[in-house]
Simulated scan of single mutants.
Amino acid sequence: MNNAASILILVFLAISFLQSGYDKIFYWKDNLDWLKGHFANTRLKNHVPLALMNVLVLEMISGILCIVGCIELMVNNGRLFGYYGAVFSCITLIMLLFGQRLAKDYDGARTIVIYFIPAVMAVYWLN
């Protein structure tokens, strides 16, 4: 296994994003209600449903690409899907970071950085 570290990070990202997407799909109203309060004093206050849908779509794309990337790495050492999964993961995390900073939730923003570091490592390794 020459790609063990890359596969482990892609699995980590896939689990993170697919679980988050699952939560948004099956608990949409709960997420929406919480986020409306979270962004009540920001420019996003009237756009929370659209922002939540955008994040959901990006999370699902990221997670699916990471899973396909793992399979591709294991089957033929291909890196294309894993690379795109890592890039989409970074884009998704930057969007989440922007939202947390906008809401002045600095602890939440700090947590996102913990996910961002391995995502950038995956981009670097799979490039």
Rank of each mutant, 00 (worst) to 15 (best):
G37Q: 11
L126K: 04
F88S: 13
N127S: 15
T42L: 02
L56Q: 06
L102V: 14
E72C: 08
K29M: 02
I15A: 15
T92L: 08
E59P: 01
N127T: 14
D33S: 10
R79H: 12
V87S: 02
F39E: 03
L32K: 09
M60S: 13
F98M: 02
L126F: 03
L50V: 14
L35I: 01
N41V: 00
R79F: 08
G78C: 09
L10F: 14
K104W: 08
S6D: 05
D107R: 12
L32P: 09
L73C: 07
G63Q: 03
N46R: 11
C66D: 05
I114M: 12
L97Y: 12
Y106M: 10
R101Y: 13
D23I: 00
V123Y: 05
I112N: 12
G63S: 05
F88H: 00
N2Q: 14
L96H: 01
V48S: 07
W34P: 00
I91W: 04
M121N: 10
T111Q: 13
I94G: 03
F88L: 09
D105T: 04
F88R: 05
S6C: 03
K104D: 10
Y115H: 11
M1N: 10
M1L: 00
C70V: 15
I9S: 01
I64H: 12
L50S: 15
N2G: 12
W34R: 15
K45F: 09
K45G: 04
N77V: 08
L96I: 14
A40N: 04
A122D: 04
P49D: 03
W28N: 03
M1F: 10
L93V: 05
Y27T: 05
A109Y: 14
W34M: 04
I15S: 09
G21A: 15
F39R: 06
R110P: 09
I25E: 06
N46C: 01
N54V: 06
A5I: 08
F26V: 14
G85N: 04
S20F: 06
G108P: 09
C90V: 15
A103Y: 03
Y83A: 02
M74E: 10
G63H: 03
I94V: 15
L10D: 07
I67P: 11
K45H: 12
E72F: 13
V123W: 04
D107W: 13
D30M: 08
